[in-house]
């Protein structure tokens, strides 16, 4: 058991060190642009889920795809803010890097909010799902943007 825990800690540390080292090797502008593209993708899937739940489009069969994409993207959102990507054309606030623990908590809150939304969606009540979608949005994107994103110019 001890060996497994040591291996897990070792792998986690290696991943963190690798990500940090990798971030230093790349242009900050490219990292920022990539981050914005991924955030744009989250926004796109979010909006697609809402359109389906509101019955504005006939793509109920796409719901699982958008939800899986959102889960995957939200699961890795915290990786998109490496050291060195805090200046330039970014709307991320300094607080992301100044208060990493709070930022981590906010990302985890978003992931938990997604899990809650997912469990309501699984029950198949469309009205409850739409309500849960709105609460998920406020508790995830909304909560993180409140503390860690600047307003658009």
């Amino acid at each position: 058991m001890k060996n497994i825990i040591s291996l897990f800690i070792g792998l986690s540390l290696t991943t963190a060190v690798n990500l940090h080292a990798q971030a230093e090797e790349y242009e900050p502008e490219d990292l920022i642009e990539y981050r914005q593209e991924v955030m744009g993708a989250i926004k796109g899937h979010n909006k697609a889920v809402k359109a389906i739940l509101e019955g504005k489009v006939p793509y109920d069969g796409h719901l699982d795809m958008h939800m899986a994409s959102l889960e995957a993207l939200l699961g890795r959102a915290g990786e998109l803010f490496p050291e060195g990507s805090d200046f330039g054309e970014t709307n991320a606030k300094d607080a992301v890097w100044d208060n990493p623990d709070k930022f981590k908590q906010s990302v985890e809150k978003a992931q938990n909010a997604f899990a809650s939304f997912q469990s309501v969606l699984a029950k198949g009540d469309n009205s409850a799902s739409l309500d849960a979608y709105k609460k998920f949005g406020k508790a995830s994107c909304g909560d993180c943007h409140k503390s860690f994103k600047k307003k658009d110019d």
């Binding site: 979010n46 949005g137 406020k138 909304g142 409140k146 503390s147 994103k149």
Partner: peptide
């Protein structure tokens, strides 16, 4: 209503910074 209740914008984004606090 979605803006004032949840901070959601029509394009699928969410309000940020001070306006996020206003909503919250």
């Amino acid at each position: 209503a979605d803006l004032f209740r949840y901070g959601e914008l029509p394009d699928g984004d969410y309000v940020a910074d001070h306006m996020g606090e206003v909503v919250d």
